[in-house]
């Protein structure tokens, strides 16, 4: 790790003012500017940030610590849903009674992320803002497209953990399992900048696809703080499931994960479906064709099979990740049936 200062912010405004860069902008700052007094980034739990610092992938002069900013680590009930602070740890989120009662599929996703030790420190905000796990991106030795270089090493290289959708010209997958479940249930995010301006947008729209920008996964701007994640109240007929498949059961990033939300009318027909695939694309991937199959239908085994096939429409697997097609098909099938149980 390079040398840096650690500054504790006391308010959101103070933190936003001090944060001259996002982690993404800091990583593409020219090397001659690195380490100088004007490159400061926000630290939440610090898990992903320390990982990047230890690999020498960014060299900020200052970390702005959110730990002592009041009000960021609370889960609050609001008229239209729950407001979750970005500093709530994954462990406390998974253990929260209101989440367990109302969003058990989200709890599955959160509790299945990382290891117990990491969940005790890692925050929801940091989880959503973490950088991708692509091993070329994570290696100092590869100056890849996402770090401002001219080449994606995964597309012709070791791409078994990479994207099967929208994977040109960069084949990362979004690293957050929690994000897959959150976008499926229609979560929104709230962002505040140094000038005091608040932005609210759907989490789905907060994530940045390749065609908008190759060098960042989300729309966070320098001098802007993620201040809340809002979970909407779900209608009484809503049914949700999240399933993750990793290479090992103990703890791992997913090879594939799927979140399904179905609104069922009293007659058992699906009036609205959200189907998202995680670890499939550079952003959580909405499987629109699967949603179309499910909408208006009474959900049964046959419909689940059709939806699972439809979910893979448009996939463009790379040389070593074709196995993900069958994996996702199976997970969508299972998640649809799990949701209606």
């Amino acid at each position: 790790m390079n040398r840096f200062a650690l500054a504790g912010a006391k308010t959101i405004a103070e933190a936003a003012t001090a944060a001259s860069a996002t982690v993404a902008t800091a990583m593409t700052t020219p090397p001659e500017r690195m380490g100088y007094a004007d490159l400061s980034v926000v630290k939440a739990g610090g898990i992903d940030l320390l990982d990047l610092l230890k690999e020498g992938l960014l060299a900020p002069s200052k970390l702005v610590n959110l730990r002592d900013v009041p009000g960021l680590d609370a889960v609050a009930e609001e008229a239209d849903g729950l407001r979750v602070g970005p500093m709530v740890t994954l462990a406390s989120l998974a253990a929260h009674p209101l989440l367990q009662e109302r969003y058990p599929a989200l709890v599955d996703a959160v509790a299945g992320s990382a290891s117990p030790q990491i969940r005790n420190v890692a925050t929801l905000g940091g989880n959503l803002l973490q950088r991708p796990r692509c091993w070329y991106f994570r290696s100092h030795a590869f100056h890849c497209l996402r770090k401002g270089g001219g080449h994606c090493f995964a597309i012709q290289g070791e791409n078994q953990y990479h994207a099967i959708f929208n994977n040109m010209p960069c084949a990362i997958v979004h690293p957050s399992t929690t994000a897959t479940a959150l976008v499926a249930l229609g979560a929104t995010v709230e962002l505040k900048n140094a000038a005091g301006v608040t932005r609210r947008l759907m989490l789905e729209d907060f994530f940045v696809p390749l065609e908008r920008d190759l060098q960042r996964e989300n729309d966070l701007a320098p001098q802007e703080i993620l201040t809340a994640i809002r979970l909407p109240n779900l209608p009484p007929g809503a049914r949700m499931a999240h399933i993750k498949q990793g290479e090992k059961d103990s703890f791992d990033w997913p090879l594939a994960d799927v979140a399904v939300l179905l609104d069922l009318d009293p007659g058992g027909n699906c009036t609205r479906a959200s189907v998202f695939l995680g670890a499939a694309a550079p952003v959580p991937h909405r499987a629109r064709a699967a949603e179309a199959v499910l909408t208006g239908r009474r959900i049964d085994e046959g419909v689940a099979v059709q939806a699972a096939r439809a979910a893979l429409q448009g996939a463009t697997p790379l040389s070593k990740n074709g196995y993900k097609l069958l994996l996702f098909e199976t997970l969508v099938h299972r998640a649809v049936l799990k949701a209606i149980v």
């Binding site: 650690l6 610590n65 117990p116 005790n120």
Partner: peptide, 11 residues
């Protein structure tokens, strides 16, 4: 329980 390698002493 936490990983002490992923926590700054100053934090």
């Amino acid at each position: 329980p936490i990983c002490s390698c992923m926590m700054l002493a100053t934090d």
